[in-house]
């Protein structure tokens, strides 16, 4: 943690960045995202195993958009998000300094995009055991059972859109659900409204999701949205050999076509 702080302090002191995006201690023994603009403020910067929120999200927020240059304490999920955002033309390399941190919490120093790509490849996606178990359970289901499972899983959704708000890849200024002419997705949080919303979101993230699990973590009613995304990512990887978050240059499987793409889905 000290080396992360040292790096952050130096970057601010040398005027290399205007802002450092990281974590500080929050309330009730929680940690939380924080924004540091002076070397002194960095005293409060922390990094520990609880700092799992995907703060790449803030790169698209006003505070980061307005900063001329910034640094971010980036665990592998954040690095993946940054690369994916860059691939989608949402952030520019010259503006951002990545303080790379491994899954184990070890600081690997500043990463440019090329190094970040290498780093990203060496840091596997983390999946909790219970998530694995759930995936196995769902995969064993018949099509009808799967459908019923998800209808049931989405039913408590209250459409607070915390999943969308906390997802770095959900950066659309006008979300599909807000587009009302025509009204593609019912706004009301009933069975179909919830189903269509989550299915639409999952499809928009298919092949783009970097599997940080933030959607699930932020969901107040604990819907396993991360599982849905994870299963789709897995599918895209298997079928199209495409994985998000590994490169700053990327064409999502679902909006590209190559001669080797399988067509076995045409029945």
């Amino acid at each position: 943690m000290e080396d992360i702080k040292k790096l952050a302090r130096e970057l601010l002191a040398d005027n290399k960045v205007q802002l450092v995006l990281g974590f500080e201690n929050g309330t009730a023994n929680r940690v939380r995202p924080a924004f540091f603009t002076t070397p002194e403020a960095v005293d409060k910067l922390i990094y520990n195993e609880f700092c799992i929120q995907n703060i790449a999200l803030y790169l698209k927020k006003d505070i980061c958009q307005h900063a001329a240059s910034l640094a971010i304490t980036a665990n592998p999920n954040v690095v993946r998000s940054i690369l994916q955002l860059a691939a989608e033309n949402q952030i520019k390399e010259e503006k951002i300094k990545i303080i790379g941190i491994t899954h184990e919490g070890k600081c690997v120093g500043l990463l440019d995009f090329k190094a970040a790509e290498e780093f990203s490849k060496t840091q596997p996606k983390g999946l909790k055991d219970e998530d694995k178990a759930l995936i196995e359970k769902i995969q064993a289901m018949s099509l009808e059972e799967k459908f019923d499972y998800w209808v049931e899983a989405f039913s408590p959704c209250i459409k607070c859109y915390a999943c969308r708000a906390s997802c770095p890849m959900c950066y659309c200024g006008k979300c599909n659900v807000e587009s009302n002419n025509p009204q593609w997705i019912p706004v009301a949080p009933h069975k179909y409204g919830n189903m269509e919303w989550h299915m639409m979101r999952a499809m928009h993230l298919a092949g783009r999701c970097i599997n940080c699990g933030e959607c699930n973590r932020s969901c107040p009613v604990d819907i396993p949205l991360n599982i849905l995304s994870y299963m789709l990512s897995d599918f895209v990887l298997e079928e199209f050999e495409s994985e998000a978050g590994l490169s700053a240059v990327f064409t999502p499987a679902l909006s590209s076509y190559t001669m080797v793409d399988k067509e076995n889905f045409i029945k």
Partner: peptide, 24 residues
């Protein structure tokens, strides 16, 4: 600054009554 702009706070709040009207 760190607010992500979701509606979770309002939706779990016992006193928040803001609503939307939608036709289907």
């Amino acid at each position: 600054m760190r607010c992500v702009g979701c509606g979770a706070c309002a939706f779990v709040c016992p006193a928040c009554g803001c609503f939307d009207i939608q036709d289907e």
